[in-house]
């Protein structure tokens, strides 16, 4: 069990630079809770992640409102209908919004600096949250100037795929 905990901690924990309990007059008692979970992803997200492993981005279409949503959904959030029609989406899209993350915090999935974007893939009716990258992010002003010119992006795949959302490494400007 201890090994399992360690594994989970190693996976999610990054160095916390600015989180220390200062010396103070009254005592604090240190107590950590680290709990392992196994989340059922169900048939829809299992297929979605299997798709990513094959280098494909899948959405599903609502038979009532015709919207294509990505990540694929079991049911349409507005119509509540089953979404059974699978659509392989183009790997290019438009940037709806972005932000440059420049600070470190616990549980972060990537070392800053990085850009998070909302990317509307062609043929999708919603935007997908993912990284935008493939260029120098060290100077925020340069990033701002660069991003002013970026409207279209394309998925770049990770060398090693594990059947998770990080199989897409990031979206690069085209």
């Amino acid at each position: 069990m201890a090994e399992k905990y360690k594994l989970i901690k190693d996976l999610v924990r990054m160095e916390i630079v600015d989180f220390t309990f200062p010396k103070k007059e009254y005592r604090t008692g240190r107590h950590d809770t680290v709990l392992p979970y196994n989340w059922a992803l169900g048939p829809t997200w299992t297929r979605f992640f299997d798709g990513l492993k094959e280098g494909k981005i899948f959405g599903t279409r609502c038979k009532k409102c015709n919207k294509v949503l990505v990540p694929a959904r079991t049911f349409c959030p507005s119509c509540y209908e089953d979404m059974e029609e699978w659509i392989e989406l183009p790997q290019e899209g438009s940037v709806e919004t972005w932000c440059l993350v420049n600070y470190k915090y616990y549980g972060q999935v990537k070392k800053p600096p990085y850009i998070i974007g909302q990317i509307r893939l062609d043929k999708a009716n919603c935007s997908l949250t993912h990284f935008i990258g493939g260029f120098d992010l060290s100077d925020p002003d340069k990033v701002r100037r660069k991003m002013k010119t970026v409207s279209r992006v394309k998925a770049v795949w990770s060398k090693e795929k594990h059947g998770d959302i990080y199989d897409i490494a990031y979206f690069k400007p085209i």
């Binding site: 932000c99 972060q108 999935v109 959302i165």
Partner: peptide, 24 residues
Amino acid sequence: MTILEPFLMVTIGGAPVAFSLQSR
């Protein structure tokens, strides 16, 4: 970070990210 499920939306975890995206 624990407010979002860890598989699909966790990249926007941490309040400043979600709200900076929204501002832009």
